[in-house]
């Protein structure tokens, strides 16, 4: 195969593959920066995927579908927020149970739609002008979905907001030391709720991308661990939105490269690669972290209780 074509195809596929990871991981970064860990991403993506598909199928409009996907993620995460923030229960178990519930519910609800292709899927776009560029054009600007570019924009906006605005400073501070934020007179719970809800919204959109754009259909194993990989991605990027983009693209590239090796290795072993790679990425992060003394937000996973209440 022509090397040029190989590289182009790999990068293009990597971008597409990375898109749901980017959406979900960005959402998780925002949630975890506020100190609330959300292990329900996998389930929320599944709910988003099935809801998006069902709505798009019945209304014939993918954008309503996408909106519904986001709403489904939002609704599920509001449950998690309530349990973890207001009730101050164990956020890890709450998230995990939502994944189980989300996967089961989505499979249940999605039975009617299994195997039926979406008549009006999201169409890939070519970016005007930029897609004409030699080599770079077909690599990055042809045949991708709007959601892919939207993810990059959201990442950039998230970075600017997190590091250059007061709101972002407050978010980061809540995740590090909620008592300090409380003593400064700011609403810790409200910030956490907002962060978790945004996380759910983005996870829902990630699922919607899968069922509306990436492979426009619904199947029970659709999410297939991508939510968990997105969680790993959030850690690997050290909770920084820009790094999420780079890490996500890196993951995507590695997976697609691995698929190229299908002629050499048995397919089952290749499908294993994303998960192996995730473990390696986490090991690498932990190893580097020891040297840089940078870690998770201090208050991650701990409910906040002001002295009296």
């Amino acid at each position: 195969m022509d090397v040029d074509l190989l590289v182009v195809a790999t990068v293009a596929r990597a971008l597409a593959f990375a898109t749901p990871l980017l959406w979900a991981a960005l959402g998780e970064v925002i949630a975890e920066r506020s100190g609330v860990v959300n292990l329900g991403v996998e389930g929320m993506m599944a709910l988003g995927a099935v809801t998006g598909f069902a709505v798009a199928f019945t209304t014939g409009d993918v954008w309503w579908g996408l909106a519904a996907a986001g709403a489904a993620g939002l609704a599920a995460s509001s449950l998690h927020a309530f349990v973890a923030i207001t009730l101050r229960a164990d956020a890890y178990v709450s998230g995990l149970s939502l994944t189980m519930l989300g996967l089961g519910l989505s499979a249940l609800v999605g039975r009617a739609w299994v195997g039926r292709p979406l008549p009006t899927p999201m169409r890939p776009v070519d970016v005007p002008l930029l897609s004409e560029l030699p080599l770079v054009g077909p690599m990055l600007f042809q045949g991708q979905h709007l959601l892919t570019y939207a993810a990059l924009v959201v990442a950039a906006l998230a970075w600017v907001w997190m590091y250059r605005t007061r709101g972002g400073l407050v978010l980061r501070s809540v995740g590090e030391n909620p008592a300090a934020v409380d003593a400064a007179g700011l609403p810790v719970r409200r910030v956490r709720y907002a962060a978790v809800l945004v996380g759910g919204l983005l996870a829902g959109i990630a699922g919607g991308y899968l069922s509306l754009a990436y492979r426009p259909s619904w199947g029970e194993g659709m999410v297939n661990g991508l939510g968990w990989i997105a969680l790993a991605l959030a850690i690997f990027s050290m909770w920084d939105p820009l790094r999420v983009v780079f890490a996500g693209l890196l993951f995507g590239a590695c997976f697609t490269l691995a698929f190229r090796l299908q002629t050499v290795f048995p397919p089952e072993l290749l499908t294993m690669l994303p998960y192996v790679f995730t473990v390696l990425a986490l090991v690498f992060t932990a190893w580097r972290r020891g040297r840089h003394a940078f870690g998770a937000p201090e208050a991650l996973g701990r409910p906040y209780l002001r002295g009296e209440r």
């Binding site: 389930g43 449950l79 309530f82 349990v83 009730l87 101050r88 229960a89 164990d90 178990v93 709450s94 995990l96 149970s97 939502l98 994944t99 189980m100 519930l101 989300g102 996967l103 089961g104 519910l105 499979a107 249940l108 039975r111």
Partner: peptide, 21 residues
């Protein structure tokens, strides 16, 4: 549907976790 046990398990887990406090 065959997914009911998963749903039940997830639901009970959520309720048990939520009611822990």
């Amino acid at each position: 549907p065959s997914q009911l046990p998963d749903v039940v398990t997830g639901l009970v887990l959520l309720l048990v976790a939520a009611s822990e406090p």
